[in-house]
Design a protein around this nucleic acid. Sequence first.
RNA 1: GGCCCCAUGGUCAAGCGGUUAAGACGGCGCCCUCUCAAGGCGCAAUCACGAGUUCGAUUCUCGUUGGGGUCACCA
Length: 488
Amino acid sequence: MKIRTRFAPSPTGFMHVGNLRTALYEYLVAKHEGGDFILRIEDTDQERFVEGATDVIYNTLKTAGITHDEGPDKPGDCGPYVQSERLSLYKPYAEQLVKEGKAYYCFCSKERLAALRESAPEGTVVGYDRHCRDLPQDEIDGKLASGVPYVIRQKSPLTGESTYVDAVYGEITIKNEELDDQILIKEDGFPTYNFANVIDDHTMGITHVVRGSEYLTSTPKYNALYEAFGWEIPTYIHLPLIMGKSVDENGETVVSKLSKRHGSTGFFDLVNEGFLPQAIINYIALLGWAPAGEYENREIFTMDELIRAFDIHGISKSPSVFDYDKLEWMNAEYIKAMSSEEFLSYAKPYYDDLGLGSQHYELLEEMLKPRITRFPQITEKLQFVKELENYSVELFVHKKSKSSIESSREILNDVIPMLDGCSWDRESITSLLTEYAAAKEYKNALVMWPVRIAAAGVAVTPGGCAEVLLLLGKEEALRRLDLGLSKL
RNA sequence: GGCCCCAUGGUCAAGCGGUUAAGACGGCGCCCUCUCAAGGCGCAAUCACGAGUUCGAUUCUCGUUGGGGUCACCA
């Protein structure tokens, strides 16, 4: 049987990396077995409609490289793929259950339910008291006829226990008394998420339900529905949650479900900060899953490799903490592996902003590739090219290279006229400086340091002395060197 | 609070009765070096605790502790 999985986000206008990872695993589970991956939009909550939110979903999947086989924008045999367009479909199913005595009309007002909850003893939580579960038929008919608002509730078993097998967590058993008579159809006639989910998954032929572990305890309710209809229960693959780490007001480190307070958690937030979509995907693929066999210990994966290597048995059961440092490292790995063309395509906007032309591209790539972990860092790393800081003369003093004010003065004084007559290429500049050092019996460091400092005006530059001079151009470089000498 | 799940270094994690308990990120040190990186080499750091089972437990069972999840006319 062909495997079919689905990603069923609700359009909130924001794609959390946790949701993205779920989508990724759903995609991988299907594709590893040559199955289909379906996109379904769950928008039954009328109060939460967000304009343009579905576009965020499409764009995320597209830039993440997760392509669905069927969806609102890719018609298949199970459409429509938007729940709000399937509304007429759900109620008949619920009514069928009512007829069969597996569900019932409930006329309890929201006020009554709220009061019920409030009456619960301190520290406890109570569910619905099943007030309408066994109403006399004539009372039901009367209320229906006079138009009393109602919801349809599922009749959950009152005793015993329900067991199912999850592909990653194994056997899960829940006492039936823990199960509420969940609402299937809301007062507005719309299905609840749980109900629509089951109907859709079944009618769309979903074979493997992949979702977060927060559904572990409510799954028996889903199964009760499948059983009520006599449908085959899908394979469940529950995923461990993604956590974030933060420090509370007492300085204690606390771990909790990943949220905004842990930093950027939206896919596009991360992209805007300079994280590459492939790196993000690669990183989250490894958050909660470990490859085995020939792929064991491998860290860098293309999507095709992920598809080949993915295996349900490698999915972890315990929650994992999102580690921005590791993501950063991985992003750098992707940058280092880029071709020159690709690197340039990402870097060019920053070069343009700094006024660095194409004659510098090769040198810039060499300088930047091992030094940036995200492209936006280019601006800061090369700020010295754009403007010379009003630096302090103390910068010329460097203990390790033995550079001092005096030595710097002498060296700049000697070297400036020489550079003035020097051909402006890396080879020439480097040999001029090293030969000067050799002639004076100075360490290279002693002469390179002051030249670089005078040219850049900052202690840290992404490259050496010659590279800095080259980026500046002869005229500007000499102007800065003269300025530096005048400070000494 | 009831119920469910989880538990290997700071983090991601391999392990699936007998191992010197992998690897990666991060940290630290050394090398390289004009700064910062990158790269190379190396170091520190883990089986939460307590009972069992067993010739032998990180591994199996139970309990404790800790963490997470869940108890909506939200999805």
